[in-house]
Design a protein around this nucleic acid. Structure first.
Lengths: 302, 302
DNA sequence: TCTTAACTTGAAAGATTTTCATATAAAACC
DNA sequence: GGTTTTATATGAAAATCTTTCAAGTTAAGA
């Protein structure tokens, strides 16, 4: 019998373009999806999509079911939000603090979508820069932090993992190397956001441990950082998704750091009082879904 | 996680008015539904309906989910019909023959609904009266028979069971009895449809075995039979659902026959070639659903 | 007060779904 | 042209979820 689960699978299959990647989206194995699809195909008496083409192509039957999914899934989500509103009376506020500066880049569209879904919840960015956003939570000056380190006193929800690349001007001397090592940064100028050194992964994880000397120069916005980099004032360490376009259009070039690359995991943290709130869970969902769709080269966590 | 199954349960719960009867509709135990609902209530954090009132009343949460069911279930059925059309190319014809005369009463709205759902299928009633409708199937002059006896050579699908009551004029002498026995019919005139005696349950099952003498008089339409009964020309044996209104408005009165009552089961029979056709299965569904909704005092089979 | 009808509940049984381990097959790479 | 890599399939075992069974509870009605 057709179930909502199957519609989600089809929908994921379209976004992902293959069974393997769809399985990751759904936190299932590829085998599970293969079995699921086989069941549907038995039931409907024919294949739902062509395999082994990238991306897969849906058959007429598959496309019709996909259209059903497109109709049903948003209705279901809407209904579940309505139910949450009914039972939790969800007016509330959500003051969001960011640990990771670059996250501004995707946060605005996420907040727009969230406002549509939860008109009664007042969502705002906590402005100004803070050495330790979790302190804002403790002090009750923020309700939710998006960041990579999380204190066990808060409820946390995994978002995604991404690689931090070193960005440099075209024809920079380090461009010759495929991967950069700590020693390569000796004497370089780092362009960073204006935050403490401890909050800059490249410094904390790589340069400090290796005792490398470097200069720092700061800029507030990602574009400003990139301008400085492009005009040869220094190098920067930024998320792959934040710089993809600039690299693709040969404005700057990027190299991984160390043998494994430098990776960062993002989480949402909220005080325990908010952990059950439907609008908080949905905020996390909106982030995960929009980022998975919009940002290249990230991996959803958990 | 919410599944389509749950929406069907809620929908059945509304039609049925209680868990016990909803369970019958769905061919599940009442306990299964109780567990199902409990799961939903845990998930949504509150009751979905008030118990132990007849009929049950839905809470705001329950009503919202029910509204979701009302949106989703028809979409799903539509999509599945579309898929069946895609894979089976279902233009076809469906010549329907009736064994049970009274069934005309509900067949017309069923056929209307069916024509909406399957515009490419030409559905028609095989007109004229036939001693044995199954012969029409064998001869290839009909595609589907609705009747109570079924030959094993055909694929059959259960519809419903109903009680056949004896109908008599008000103040008829037999009205004094709560239940009629074979001997009570001695010397009476039976008003029947113009079909062979073997096809009239009361005669075949009760009067013949007991060797009772009776007269017969025939009429083609149910209203005509009832007119004759009301004007004291004789008694008739008709399905409970066919006469309910006439009894309720004191136009005639009705009594069960024998200690168990006289019951009849209805089936759909089709030749093997049609048994898999989606439009045939859906025709059966439309009958079952519409009759369950419209006809009083029937029991869905299987 | 006893009976009945409607629902709940915990444990066992039954189904279904998922994973694991492995197979196959096409495409990409050297 | 062979070797890897990538994508999917499959059977059996494991895990999970759903349903049934067998009482148990509760409220209304006789």
């Amino acid at each position: 019998m057709l179930e909502i689960r199957h519609l989600r699978t089809l929908s994921a299959l379209r976004s992902a373009g293959s069974l393997v990647r769809a399985a990751q989206l759904l936190n299932l194995t590829q085998s599970a999806l293969s079995h699921q699809i086989k069941l549907l195909e038995d039931r409907y008496g024919g294949p739902l999509f062509e395999r082994k083409t990238v991306p897969i192509g849906f058959t007429a039957t598959g496309a019709r079911l996909l259209r059903l999914a497109d109709t049903l899934l948003p209705e279901i989500e809407q209904a579940e939000r309505d139910v949450a509103r009914l039972s939790q009376g969800d007016q509330g506020q959500l003051r969001v603090a960011l640990e990771c500066h670059t996250c501004f880049d995707w946060l605005m569209p996420v907040m727009d979508e969230f406002r549509q879904r939860w008109p009664e919840v007042e969502i705002d960015l906590v402005s100004g820069f803070h050495s330790e956003p979790c302190d804002l939570l403790r002090a009750g000056n923020a309700d939710l932090v998006i960041g990579s380190n999380y204190a066990s006193e808060f409820a946390t929800f995994p978002l995604f993992r991404f690689e931090i690349l070193t960005v440099m001007a075209l024809k920079h001397k380090l461009q010759a190397k495929r991967r950069l090592q700590a020693a390569d940064f000796e004497g370089e100028t780092l362009i960073t956001y204006p935050v403490p050194e401890a909050r800059i992964d490249l410094i904390r994880e790589v340069l400090k441990p290796a005792g490398i000397h470097y200069q720092r120069r700061t800029a507030e916005l990602t574009v400003a950082v990139l301008q400085l980099v492009a005009s040869r004032r220094g190098v920067a360490a930024l998320p792959n998704w934040a710089i993809k376009n600039y690299v693709d259009y040969d404005y700057v070039s990027a190299r991984p750091v160390g043998d494994q690359g430098l990776w960062s995991d993002l989480f949402v943290s909220v005080p325990d009082a908010l952990r059950q709130k439907a609008f908080v869970l949905d905020f996390v969902n909106v982030i995960r879904e929009q980022c998975a769709r919009t940002l290249d080269g990230i991996e959803l966590l958990s």
